[in-house]
Amino acid sequence: MTGTLRDRAYQAAASASALFLLLGLGAVLIDTFAAALPRLDLDFVRLPPSDAGRAGGVGPIIVSTLCILGVALAAAVPPALGAGVFLAELGGRLARPVRLSLEVLAGVPSIVFGLFGNAFFCKVLGLGFSILSGGLTLACMVLPILVKATEEGVRAVPSEYRLGAAALGLSRGSYLWRIGLPQAMPLVVTGLVLGVGRALAETAALIFTSGYVDRWPESLHDSGRALSIHVYDLAMNVPGGDASAHASAAVLVLAILGVNAVVAALGRWVRTR
């Protein structure tokens, strides 16, 4: 009797926690989209902002955001795959310092990345306030997440494949390319989704690197305002910008969902290729 009572208490507590989580997410989404609805239409995602963002839309800002994200992923994914494979397959004496530095990197506050990006990419490399600087700064930030995901993905591949490939006289490289990495894809994609989320939500690291010019970007050397910065600016600096801030936040949430869907589809394609 006490047993079943205790079981029910556990079940109730666990269900309540799960429900609470759903309510939390629901509240955020409902609040954002309800306040966004009056401004959210096709023109909002198509037009450039006007009157400091109170009117117009976020067209150029979406483009800038996607460009920054594209630069960040293009710069971060190849070295992350390489480093993840290195940690999982080779390791050796270099593995410890590499792992340690990744952990430190993962714990650095984003504002520090912003200042570093400003000093290094904008000034030392002379890229100025630009989509390129912002993207490269974000690349540094998401690198630890992607490396960790790749390492875990490659480690999770059953060792029978590795032994089987070696017994057939296949090189390590072709094993990784045809078997190891495609099999690691589900975890790599999970890492990418986390990385994309972190990158798209980033404000502090971008203020000092990609800047906040809200015109249509013409090249990667132009400064471009990211959606998260636009939300921040409208909410904090523009009186009467609340509705636009909510609408921009809603677009940001939709953008994260959209990019994640694309990433997941890409991962599935690589796996079944």
């Binding site: 059953p158 494949y161 032994l163 089987g164 057939l168 045809r178 078997i179």
Partner: peptide, 16 residues
């Protein structure tokens, strides 16, 4: 290893 083939206890065809 091309001259010396090996079959394992657990069948291990590649996921291809």
């Amino acid at each position: 290893r091309r001259r010396v083939g090996m079959i394992f206890q657990k069948p291990n065809p590649f996921p291809l």
